[in-house]
């Protein structure tokens, strides 16, 4: 069980917190200590809004051990509005209704449960933008 990892990553998993370079303005997710563009270490935390479009997706039928109970499930690459791409599970949508380019928004959902007695771990997933 990797509780320290989940605790350490809480700002990323719950708030999509990455980094903004104070020298060149470049945004990154995951957070990096060194700016990829200008190599500056002068960066501050930056929260992404969690809105984006789907770049690619897959339905996983044969999952790694820990996710086996949940298969099949969908994972996507999402282009955030701020110009950064991230990897996340897709939720609240059927495979047939998913298409590249669709608008998505971040929600917090259960990522996995570590056995019947273990902790439940939460984090970001993406779902189609709700229309009212």
């Amino acid at each position: 069980m990797d509780i320290p990892r989940y605790w350490r990553l809480k700002n990323q998993r719950y708030r999509l917190q990455g980094k903004k370079c104070l020298d060149c303005g470049n945004l990154s997710f995951p957070p990096r200590l060194v700016c990829r563009k200008c190599k500056s270490r002068n960066c501050e935390p930056y929260e992404f809004k969690g809105m984006g479009t789907l770049y690619s997706y897959t339905t996983i039928f044969q999952a790694p051990d820990r996710f086996d109970q949940m298969a099949p499930y969908m994972v996507g690459l999402i282009d955030l509005e701020e110009g950064v791409r991230i990897t996340a599970q897709l939720t609240d949508v059927l495979p047939d209704d998913v298409q590249i380019g669709m608008k998505l928004e971040m929600v917090i959902r259960q990522i996995y449960e570590d056995g019947p007695k273990g902790p439940i771990l939460y984090g970001y997933k993406f779902r189609p933008v709700l229309k009212f």
Binding site: D2, R5, L9, Q12, P30, Y55, S56, Y57, T58, I60, Q62, A63, P64, F67, M70, Y73, V75, G76, L77, I86, T87, A88, Q89, I100, I111, Y112, G123
Partner: peptide, 20 residues
């Protein structure tokens, strides 16, 4: 931290590339 613990398998990563 950002691919595997989100439920992505190694095959899944390649599937994302192939779909695109």
């Amino acid at each position: 931290d950002y691919e595997t613990t989100m439920g992505l398998s190694f095959v899944g990563i390649n599937a994302l590339l192939m779909r695109r």
